[in-house]
């Protein structure tokens, strides 16, 4: 199935996807595919969340659009007002959708909007009208300046041509979403190590985080500013160990990775002669 592949790691929240969507759908009537998009709707939206602290904070930016679920909860309540196209896309039929507010609540992703003026629910159409006209991709994908969005055939994605494991957004909703993701935000632990005696940033410190329940560990080395980042961790508590030849070993326990903590300045003392 051809679908949109989203890589939040490549999103700058420039919102060109949102604006391309609005450019295509606001004030334009693409009947029978869709009526004009209402104000304050985001058929695709970059959702932003700040994590971490201090100089090691991060803005997680995740473009979210209709997930084209295989077990679409909206379809279950829509009756004849929704249909699935040949490519597998789920669409609202504007000719039959008047008054169907319940579609908005049916969607666990919050991507169906209600247009009070038209008195009907609206959502992303994958630019089906353009695909019908022979266009090669939806507008949001063409507008993305940095490949955070691409239009791919997921059946052709393999271990050989994927740069990161394929994921789905909130699979726990149980709707079998068909929009693909890679690099969805994960917890991280960051900080910097220095020697307070010589006031020196410590480079090359082996930093190892061990999950306190699963025992799984992540390793990195500090850079020339003493900085380290342990990325893409599982949620949970960790023991973080610091090891550098000539310095006393140090361990910090019960580090909660869900907060994406900035351990700030970790002091390592030189071993006594």
């Amino acid at each position: 199935m051809k679908t949109i592949l989203v890589d939040p790691d490549r999103c700058m929240q420039c919102c060109n996807c949102q604006n391309a969507c609005k450019d295509e759908h606001c004030d334009n009537d693409w009947s029978p595919i869709a009526l004009p998009q209402g104000r304050h709707q985001f058929w695709i939206q970059v959702r932003e969340q700040e994590v971490g602290q201090g100089t090691r904070m991060k803005l997680n930016r995740v473009p979210v659009l209709c997930q084209q679920c295989a077990d679409a909860p909206c379809m279950k309540v829509a009756g004849e007002a929704m249909y699935r196209r040949e490519e597998g896309y789920v669409l609202i039929d504007p000719a039959k959708a008047k008054g169907l507010k319940k579609l908005v609540d049916a969607c666990p992703y919050g991507v169906i909007y209600y247009n009070d003026e038209l008195d009907m629910p609206q959502k992303c159409t994958m630019c089906a009208h353009l695909l019908d006209m022979g266009w090669d991709r939806p507008r949001c994908v063409a507008a993305c300046p940095a490949d955070a969005l691409s239009y791919v055939d997921v059946d052709e994605l393999t271990w050989d041509n994927m740069y990161a494991p394929l994921e789905r957004l909130n699979p726990e909703f149980g709707t079998n979403p068909q929009v693909a993701y890679v690099n969805l935000p994960k917890p991280f632990i960051a900080g910097a190590v220095y020697d307070p005696k010589g006031d020196r940033c410590l480079e090359g410190v082996k930093v190892k985080a061990t999950h306190m329940v699963t025992g799984k560990s992540w390793k990195t080395r500090s850079d020339n500013y003493g900085e380290f980042r342990l990325r893409r961790l599982d949620p949970g508590y960790y023991t973080v160990a610091f090891d550098l030849c000539g310095y006393s070993y140090k361990e910090i326990s019960k580090v909660d990775a869900r907060r994406c903590p900035d351990l700030e300045d970790i002091q390592l003392y030189p071993k006594a002669e």
């Binding site: 693409w30 029978p32 595919i33 004849e80 249909y83 196209r85 040949e86 669409l91 039929d93 000719a95 089906a128 009208h129 353009l130 019908d132 006209m133 022979g134």
Partner: peptide, 12 residues
């Protein structure tokens, strides 16, 4: 199975 709506080949 109802007819699936499609858009014409050109928007003019």
């Amino acid at each position: 199975m109802p007819q699936i709506p499609h858009y014409p080949a050109s928007d003019g």
